[in-house]
């Protein structure tokens, strides 16, 4: 007979493990890379995209990654992050550290998440974290961030995903992806803003060659165009990206991922 008490030590450990770290991309800067897209397909995952959609952690492989960007080309306020993920039986866990700003103003996030398989077609994940903001001579403040996500493989080619994140407001994500072959993925995702506006993100991913892939994403609000070139060399993957905001300019980014095959 099923005894729920047997799960307590595991759940407790999970809670403690996740409690001290925070999750997800920051409000500022605006999304320079569309991390959510990976949840709609079976392909290139990395710790950042897995932590952005924690249900992906359920199918995690051991990986380590680093990310750096200059929002709108501003070198004085870079954003740097490192993340790792690890599979544990039918689960996966991940953690992430991110810093944005400089010594006068900075935001820091400590992230953690876990995902679990609930049968073959469904995966679920949770994320917890802590975000702090510090301004010189003004002190600092912090808030807890939490979220949950679900991923459902509806068919051979279709995948849908939903996510809820609670920060200073509750943000919902829902989308669907179509992957007719491992070399092509198309997805559409909708989400809401703090002002109760809704916008969508459309993504197309295409593997041009075994070592080269291209990701294009268009976000509606604010209007953003993101492109990413992924170069894979054995277990190492380098993603070079750029996001274009019409009025604020170009945001370059680079991600390095080491992933165990």
């Amino acid at each position: 007979m099923f005894n729920p008490l047997r799960l307590c030590p595991r759940t407790g450990m999970l809670f403690l493990f996740l409690f001290s770290f925070s999750a997800d991309a920051m409000q500022l800067p605006p999304p320079v890379r569309y991390w959510h897209g990976a949840v709609f397909g079976e392909g290139d995952k990395d710790p950042f995209s897995a932590l952005a959609s924690p249900s992906l952690l359920a199918t995690a492989t051991a990986a380590l990654s680093a990310y750096s960007t200059w929002p709108f080309g501003m070198r004085s306020v870079p954003l740097n992050a490192v993340a790792a993920m690890l599979p544990i039986r039918n689960m996966g866990i991940g953690m992430q550290v991110m810093q944005f700003g400089n010594q006068y103003w900075k935001e820091q996030e400590l992230s953690g998440g876990a995902g679990i398989r609930l049968g073959k077609p469904v995966q679920a994940g949770v994320q917890f974290g802590y975000r702090s903001k510090a301004v010189v001579q003004y002190g600092s403040s912090g808030q807890v961030v939490a979220g949950a996500g679900f991923r459902w493989k509806m068919g051979k080619r279709w995948t849908s995903a939903m996510q809820v994140i609670r920060r200073d407001y509750t943000q919902y994500f829902a989308g669907i992806g179509w992957q007719p072959s491992p070399d092509f993925l198309f997805s559409v995702e909708g989400t809401n803003t703090i002002h109760k506006d809704y916008y969508g993100t459309v993504q197309a991913f295409s593997r041009l060659a075994p070592a080269l892939a291209l990701q294009l994403a268009v976000t509606g609000l604010p209007a953003y165009l993101q492109t990413l070139v992924m170069i894979t060399i054995r277990q190492l993957r380098i993603d070079i990206g750029a996001a274009l905001h019409q009025q604020l300019g170009l945001t370059p980014s680079v991600t390095v991922v080491w992933q165990k095959q």
Partner: peptide
């Protein structure tokens, strides 16, 4: 103009 497989053109 790019053909991304049998299913899509960009």
């Amino acid at each position: 103009l790019m053909s991304a497989g049998n299913y899509a053109d960009i």
